[in-house]
Design a protein around this nucleic acid. Structure first.
Lengths: 350, 350
DNA sequence: CCAGTTTCTGGGAGCGCTCTCGCGGAATCT
DNA sequence: AGATTCCGCGAGAGCGCTCCCAGAAACTGG
């Protein structure tokens, strides 16, 4: 297509737009210029000659041609299918996004985002339509997610965040929600609490289901009853308020809430009744987002390393792409129970 | 390069990966398949034959090849050079980003983001390195910005948000900050206020400088003094608190703050002194972000249509790309003074 | 000093697509 | 009925790059 003027040249002002131009200008072959550009072995003499021309002409390789010829673009997709409003409000997502972008930017990888304003089918279609992508990272919160299924079924290298798929070939970064929830509940039990309520996360999400499972597991092991002590929430502060009200009505001496946001809601509800935390009701959350340490009292919670999950996912994807064998990457990040005032009043503020 | 296995085929399982495959399968030429895919005139008979094969083989065009051959990728870059923390905290940016992404997604355009975790030079280099981009949208807040300069100097079609560059060729979407600030100040004057303070935005930003200019202009026209009444702020809530303290010390009966965040800080400071808004001190902000209407009292402010600025920028860029002549796009969005309780106590809550 | 290496370079064949050109046959005109 | 226009289609030349291959040049050792 000499018909359409090449993007970057008006008339003949900027001469070197292609490798051939550079080759002509520096008196070597195109192959040699390519070697110089890509840092492969070339004699010092020629290398310098070429580099000077590259410099002078402010040459920039054509990314599309490169991608076509090499099969890799250096660009990955990032899909976080959540309501945009929530995306920006909820530090959970912004922290994860930051982890991803920091790592990828550091590796000079490009990234395209799909931040979930569309339907899942549209997203899948759109992502797969960007066929030049080297791979994609997708945060998979729901147990059932057609976007994830579609990606997994496609030939696109994919890393999931937050969902250990049973598919043998799936790559993921996750935390052990069950274990962490068990630990947290066990912590509350060890404090002598016996009526421990749980405010669930959204049903149908991995984190929601796994955390309630961990809670049940710990309670069962301790021989404690759970009937009436599990109230549905949906990870929002508001749901935490409502759920805590119900738990307080039936009577509890501790509440384990499925995330920090709902825990902060629970805290508000407990306070509103004139009850003390942790004396009357001990409280624990999950995620350890920044604000958790600044609640009054500071919240006992599970440090999930949300930002780190993003970093690991990005790292895994890049490793995966570099690995010809494409052996699956599975990363289970450790969690840590962070004990603060909301469960153990006497402990000095960290 | 038959050497590297084509990305999407393992062995010979999925046969149709290229137009040539489709052509062979449907017994037409590659050109005709291309016409079908791109919706150009083809007889119904052949069209259907081809479409059936496309369907069956779940064919997806190779984006890189398309870009190389056609010179357009359908992907644009979005650069918002702000600290990521601020990006997510400050609704200003998230609203603008949402406007941009909504419009572009609606037009099925892809987008790549640079959300400002790197230095300006790095960003410029990285963006220009993605040579396949059809164009870029950049939010230009600072008076001097090397990234913007570099983009403008390059051959990359670029639309600025928030900066009317004098460059005849620059495309932008902006609002008339001077006029809007003048209007707001004039509103306060019309209420009989005479000692009207201004809390500036960050110096060196277009919005900051223009808004103080509009304020000065209105004050001068009304014959009011401004010395001692202009205090530096930086668009944050905290700076609003500090600046308001100073203004209250010198004595004011109204404050016009350069944005809503700093206005909310000012509100806090005024309240802390036991003064009433608007009876003792009338207050006005700028931007009309969501929270402005929910302050107590609701804040008089300038509706800048932040989300709309994003939409318009995206629309402008797409128009620009469709326009062979590439005649410059300049959009000056209207603003509206939204009068609420914080300036006119008697007005019923909107 | 020549055969056997090793290193470096250029030639050239693609990667998968778009788009112009021109041909043949159908539709329209005189 | 013959001349003219129109339309649909195939052929084929690129787009700018990567990477294999083989020849040339520079070493090595006997």
């Amino acid at each position: 297509m000499a018909r359409r003027a090449p993007k970057a040249s008006d008339g003949e002002s900027g001469p070197a737009r292609t490798l051939d131009d550079l080759a002509a200008l520096s008196g070597v072959s195109r192959a040699t210029v390519s070697r110089v550009i890509n840092g492969r072995r070339v004699s010092t003499l020629l290398r310098e000659r070429v580099l000077r021309v590259v410099e002078e002409t402010r040459y920039r390789p054509n990314a599309a041609a490169r991608t076509l010829a090499s099969g890799r673009s250096g660009v990955v997709g990032v899909v976080m299918h959540v309501d945009p409003h929530q995306l920006f409000q909820d530090p959970y997502f912004s922290q994860m996004l930051q982890g991803i972008t920091d790592y990828l930017a550091g590796q000079r990888a490009g990234m395209m985002f799909w931040l979930g304003n569309r339907t899942k089918e549209e997203i899948l279609d759109h992502v797969l339509g960007m066929s030049f992508l080297d791979g994609v990272i997708i945060s998979a919160h729901a147990l059932e997610d057609p976007t994830v299924d579609g990606l997994l079924a496609s030939s696109m290298p994919t890393v999931l965040i937050g969902h250990r798929r049973s598919d043998a070939s799936a790559n993921y970064v996750d935390i052990d929600n069950v274990q962490a929830a068990d630990d947290t509940t066990t912590h509350l039990i060890s404090l002598g609490r016996v009526r421990i309520g749980h405010i669930t996360g959204s049903r149908g999400t991995v984190a929601g289901e796994d955390r309630v499972a961990g809670y049940r597991q710990a309670m069962r092991r301790a021989g404690l009853r759970v009937d009436g002590l599990i109230v549905d929430g949906n990870f929002t502060r508001e749901s935490g308020v409502d759920a805590a009200e119900k738990l307080l009505d039936v009577g509890v001496d501790a509440i384990f809430s499925a995330n920090d946001a709902s825990a902060s809601g629970a805290l508000e509800a407990i306070r509103a009744r004139g009850l003390r935390v942790p004396e009357d009701v001990a409280l624990a959350g999950f995620d350890d987002l920044e604000f958790a340490a600044h609640l009054d009292p500071p919240l006992t919670t599970v440090r999930a390393g949300v930002r780190q999950q993003g970093v690991e996912a990005a790292r895994s994807l890049l490793q995966l792409l570099g690995d010809v064998g494409r052996s699956p990457r599975r990363v289970l990040l450790p969690t840590e129970l962070v004990i603060r005032h909301s469960s153990v009043g006497g402990v000095p503020r960290e």
